[in-house]
Simulated scan of single mutants.
Amino acid sequence: MRAAVLTRFGAPLTVRETPDPEAVGGEVVVQVLAACVPPYAVEVFSGRRNYPLEPPVIPGIGGMGRVVGVGPDATRLRVGDLVWCDCTVRSRDDALTPDITLQGWSSRGDGGARLARHLHDGSFAELMRLPTENVYPLPAEAEDDPARWASLGVYVIPYGGLLAGELHAGEALLVSGATGNLGSAAVAVALAMGAGRVIAPGRNRAALDLLDDRFGPRVRPVELTGEEATDRAAMSAAAEGPIDMVLDLLPPAAPSSAARAAAMTVREYGRVVLMGGVGMLGGADLALPYPWIMRNSVTVRGQWMYPRPANVGMIRLISAGALDLGPEQVRTFPLDAVNDAVEYAAAHAGPFDRTVLTPPAG
């Protein structure tokens, strides 16, 4: 098969022939039809994000495709099935605290690194080998536009955060980082789940206007100034009532003060879910006041990626039309143009802007 290979950090990806993967027990091989290229991929491949990838590696964080091979223990999947490929792989030998790797992308701890060496390669290839439990059947209509459906991988991440925070219909949610690629996806998913209103702070006026135009009065845009107390007051005022939950999706370059300003708008007994990258590149850590958390009975929790059932829930939301993929701005690239795709994705990181690699010829 042909695949895009990261030979070393800082070098362009090389498209070359590599051995076809083979499914053994507990595994599936999928022909990749479409895989999203994250806007920050250039930071990963350059080494700036210091992800624990071990070159040479075929990168990529999941996608959609068609089953071409199954292991002997698969009971329902069949060759030819259209499927979603989830990159979040969990070890099978610890039910309480499984090690995790994002196949072809990142991992957590020594156990995650060992898992990554076994399931080393991602979706920037014609074929991909995955654990059987990481493959989810898709409805027939997904075949009409695989590139658009590949954005499922963007939406399922904030969906995991919203599930972790137990967002209920009618509640008020503040999305910290709402004008970014993941943050804007969180706004859309929250509304699809029935949020009563979503406060959307950001510094990009054009992106805020886009959210306002697309979703109407249930979204309350707030243009930030960078001054913590001023911004906190503006976000609270925009809610016109208590904020039940805050979901933080700010990128690594964002200051911790921005995350703190958003988090501290939450009501008494409210929930704060942290999914962003604040502090990953150095700088001040997030410092939430102990007395404020304790006396207001605030729940603060972290969430990396999402639980397995979130994949099924996300597929259902899209299939039902609750989450409309129609407005997505999708630009596709063939496998041979993978470096152009990485460059394009970095320059088009705004709301609902998707860069998609389509490995099959044509």
Rank of each mutant, 00 (worst) to 15 (best):
G25P: 09
A23I: 00
G60P: 01
C36V: 12
A23C: 05
P39G: 00
V79Y: 02
G63Q: 07
D73I: 03
A41D: 10
S46I: 08
I61E: 12
A41L: 12
L53Y: 10
G65H: 03
A74E: 09
V28M: 10
V67F: 00
R66L: 13
E22G: 14
R48G: 00
G69F: 06
D73F: 02
V24P: 04
Y40C: 06
P38T: 04
P19E: 04
L53T: 02
V44K: 07
P55A: 06
V68R: 03
V29F: 08
M64D: 15
E27Y: 04
L77W: 09
P55T: 11
G65Q: 04
V79P: 01
R66G: 15
R78V: 03
G62W: 09
E27L: 05
P21Q: 00
T75F: 12
G62M: 02
V67T: 14
N50P: 03
A74W: 08
G26C: 01
P19L: 08
Q31N: 01
E27K: 02
M64Q: 13
R49D: 15
V57P: 08
V37S: 04
R48L: 11
C36L: 13
A74Y: 09
G62H: 01
G63D: 01
P21C: 02
T75V: 12
G63T: 07
R76S: 09
E54G: 06
V67N: 15
A35N: 05
L33H: 05
P55I: 06
E27H: 03
A74D: 10
L77S: 14
E54H: 08
V57W: 08
V70A: 10
R76D: 11
R66M: 12
I58N: 05
R66D: 15
G47F: 10
E43Q: 11
D73A: 03
R76A: 09
G71Y: 05
V67Y: 02
V37L: 11
M64K: 13
G60I: 07
P21M: 09
E22Y: 03
V57F: 07
A23W: 00
P21I: 04
M64S: 08
A34F: 01
V42I: 15
R78S: 14
P39R: 11
I61P: 09
E43I: 06
G26M: 05
P21L: 03
R49T: 13
R48E: 11
V32D: 05
V42Y: 08
Y40D: 06
A23M: 13
